[in-house]
Amino acid sequence: MNEYLILMRLDLITKEAQPSPEQMEGYMKQYHDWVGGIAAQNKFVGGTGLSMEGKVIKPNNVITDGPFAEVKESIAGFVTIKAKDMDDAVNMAKTCPILLGDGNSIEVRQITGSHQDNN
């Protein structure tokens, strides 16, 4: 078993793309059921949602508010899972309800366990 990072991205800036509180509740249930399903297979390692606020730091001490000042695809949360291989990890990521939203995306990356580039 390897560990993989599932990085969830969604549009946090376009006003029309933001869900209503009721929609949000429905999405959260689907999301929790999805994570619960991974955990029920003993493949959940860790991870959590992220707050809407944040800072972006660039070279020369340039610090801006918000993780989503320039891009439509902001990181919404991350989950690390155990999976046999990349295909297995992608299969689990595929059922993430965040993909029900247009323009949203998920990135799956293997965790190498070191800071070196294993590729």
């Binding site: 619960g36 955990a39 029920a40």
Partner: peptide, 27 residues
């Protein structure tokens, strides 16, 4: 619905086969 969400949470803290099965029943 409450029991399902509790099992979703419990399994993230600590996996056990019986919790996985109970979660699926609640599902």
């Amino acid at each position: 619905e409450s029991v399902l969400q509790l099992y979703n949470l419990l399994l993230q803290i600590e996996y056990s086969p019986i919790a996985a099965l109970n979660r699926t029943y609640a599902l």
